[in-house]
Amino acid sequence: MKAILVFIDGTTCDMRHRITLQGADDFFSDENIMKDIPTAGSVECMNELAENYHLVYMGARPSEYNEITAKWYTAKGFADGEVYCGKSQDERMNIVKYLKKKYEFYAGIGDRWMIMNSTLN
């Protein structure tokens, strides 16, 4: 299946309103995540890409926030896609190894070159 890997924070999700909470217990609270806003043009872009590709959203968040992150994407009008989060770089690289067995990635959208490169090669 043709897929595109899309990063979450800073790429499709503007979470700057909670940046002052970094390190606090409620930084990743459901309430605060649901207050995040889509980055400019990201909803339209992802919806257009979803016409031809399966979307896989990946974030540098603890994996226990996969479900609320998926709810955020739905609530904000994004095309359906799978959500995978991993707090550490190693966790995300392991997710990429798993995903490469499942999908043929055509592109990566985001700011994590090492993960994008690993996904496409």
Score class of each variant (00 low, 15 high):
121 N>F: 11
14 D>Q: 01
7 F>W: 10
3 A>H: 06
40 A>R: 13
16 R>D: 11
18 R>G: 00
112 R>F: 15
100 K>Y: 03
64 E>I: 13
36 D>Y: 01
68 I>Y: 07
64 E>N: 15
19 I>F: 11
70 A>H: 07
61 R>F: 01
54 H>Q: 14
55 L>R: 01
99 L>T: 04
110 G>K: 08
59 G>P: 09
114 M>A: 14
80 D>L: 06
44 E>F: 10
77 G>M: 05
37 I>R: 15
6 V>R: 02
97 K>S: 11
30 D>R: 09
20 T>G: 07
81 G>M: 06
95 I>R: 00
60 A>E: 09
30 D>C: 04
105 F>P: 02
119 T>P: 09
84 Y>G: 05
59 G>E: 09
101 K>L: 01
24 A>C: 05
85 C>W: 01
111 D>M: 12
115 I>T: 10
37 I>K: 15
52 N>C: 09
110 G>E: 10
95 I>H: 00
85 C>F: 00
102 K>N: 03
57 Y>H: 02
95 I>T: 07
18 R>Y: 06
25 D>L: 00
11 T>C: 12
26 D>P: 02
69 T>I: 05
67 E>Q: 15
37 I>H: 08
54 H>G: 01
90 D>I: 14
119 T>M: 15
8 I>T: 04
82 E>A: 10
94 N>H: 09
117 N>F: 03
9 D>C: 03
54 H>F: 12
1 M>S: 14
8 I>R: 08
14 D>S: 06
121 N>T: 12
77 G>R: 02
57 Y>P: 09
74 T>N: 11
106 Y>G: 08
82 E>D: 15
28 F>T: 10
36 D>T: 07
43 V>P: 05
107 A>T: 06
89 Q>I: 12
14 D>H: 08
87 K>H: 14
62 P>M: 06
77 G>S: 07
38 P>V: 03
24 A>N: 02
69 T>P: 04
17 H>P: 08
32 N>S: 03
1 M>I: 11
32 N>P: 06
27 F>T: 01
27 F>P: 07
112 R>Y: 13
38 P>A: 13
117 N>D: 13
113 W>L: 14
9 D>L: 01
68 I>P: 02
6 V>I: 15
69 T>E: 01
64 E>R: 14
116 M>G: 15
118 S>Q: 14
121 N>Q: 11
78 F>M: 08
79 A>E: 00
42 S>H: 09
42 S>I: 03
65 Y>Q: 08
8 I>P: 04
99 L>H: 04
31 E>V: 07
96 V>W: 06
2 K>M: 10
27 F>S: 00
26 D>M: 02
94 N>M: 07
60 A>R: 01
87 K>T: 08
14 D>A: 04
68 I>K: 04
2 K>H: 09
12 T>M: 10
113 W>Q: 12
13 C>F: 08
117 N>E: 14
56 V>L: 11
109 I>N: 06
53 Y>G: 04
31 E>D: 13
92 R>H: 09
27 F>Y: 13
112 R>H: 13
112 R>Q: 14
46 M>H: 09
118 S>I: 02
